[in-house]
Amino acid sequence: MIRTALLVAGKDLRIERRSRVLLWQVLPFGVMALVLSGLALGPAHAGNSSAGPGLFYLVMLLVTLLMINRSQVIEGSSGTRTSVATLGLDPAGVFLGKALALAVELWITGVVVLAGAVLLLHTALVGSAEALPSVLVILAALAAAGTLYGALSGGGQGPATLLPVLSFPAFAPLLIAGERSYSDALHGGSLWQWWLISLVALVAYLGIGILLYGVLEES
């Protein structure tokens, strides 16, 4: 399972590096969304650090939806899917590999958007740095849940509009936990309970994915 996961993650990341979609499309989109969110709040509120965590996770939600769809689309045409199906890869390994690749892509985007929040929204640097570990865990949980819901919504071959509707109930608790954790980091509050919730969510989604991804692929 681990060997398959590393093989699939390596393949997905190589394709992303080659296509440069993350560099030239997703990262600029994330920064633009952050700027536009700040503009929507207006100058009086955009510089207020209390808005930073919410805006950060709003932007990361949009980026996550884009990247989930991308993660499924790179599996290619139905001919490619059929050829790969005949390789008999362990579906649990495929799930872990796709979730790992998506997590790496979200971590890269998250660090850039977090830096953007500090520079553009004047969110406190120290608090943002303290929030970074919890941000990485939340993004990993979003990647695990997103990989599962990406397959559930048709694996890149179904309507892309279905994904936000299906995944919202799974994403909402993660986004709330992430926002609270980031806010507490900015205001010197305790972070451990949000850490715990995020880790439990990550483990739960990984477990569900390992068990169900094969069934979703077959269906």
Binding site: K11, R14, I15, R18, S19, I74, G76, S77, S78, G79, T80, T82, S83, A85, T86, L87, G88
Partner: peptide, 19 residues
């Protein structure tokens, strides 16, 4: 198990275009 024993070549592409 059966899929591992067969090879498929479709009339569409059967591999990753960016690789």
């Amino acid at each position: 198990d059966l899929r591992r024993r067969v090879g498929w070549l479709g009339h569409e592409g059967s591999f990753y275009d960016d690789l």
